[in-house]
Design a protein around this nucleic acid. Structure first.
Length: 129
DNA sequence: TTTCTCACA
DNA sequence: TGTGAGAA
């Protein structure tokens, strides 16, 4: 599922294609970029290059606009999304809770100090192993 | 030809 | 948001 994400993030579409795909004017597309709603990359000639993700976002923006949401409102929506993603990321970067650490230390302790005797006892009473 | 930036009778 | 000018 990583390859697919990379493809969707590949910025290869010129604004002309984006205009046809989204039915938005170049003026609008550039304006939304000015509002930080989309962040297309630039090629060697300073041309904007959009990814499929950008297309999706522009389509979303258009839907929100149709629903009567203004630029500020849309910005808030994406700000909230970014805030939640940042928290999830932070959670993934330090997945070890105190409970995790205690469990790991206990297991390690068992393996170095008590394991041999425990195994000895275990095997004596479980001949089928 | 297409896209970019800038500006507005 | 549209549109036109001049450049790349």
């Amino acid at each position: 599922m990583k390859e697919k994400e990379l493809r969707r993030s590949q910025a290869v579409l010129p604004i002309g294609t984006v205009m046809k795909l989204t039915k938005l004017s170049a003026r609008q597309i550039r304006y939304y970029e000015e509002q930080q709603l989309v962040t297309p990359k630039r090629n060697e000639g300073n041309r904007r290059m959009y990814s499929l993700n950008d297309i999706d976002r522009l389509l979303e923006i258009k839907d929100y606009l149709d629903e009567g949401i203004n630029m500020a409102g849309i910005k808030h929506i994406y700000d909230e999304k970014a805030r939640k993603q940042a928290q999830k990321k932070a959670q993934l970067e330090k997945p070890l809770t105190d409970a995790d650490v205690r469990r790991i230390l206990r297991d390690e302790f068992m393996s170095v100090s008590g394991l041999s005797k425990q195994n000895e006892f275990f095997f004596k009473h479980n001949k089928n192993f």
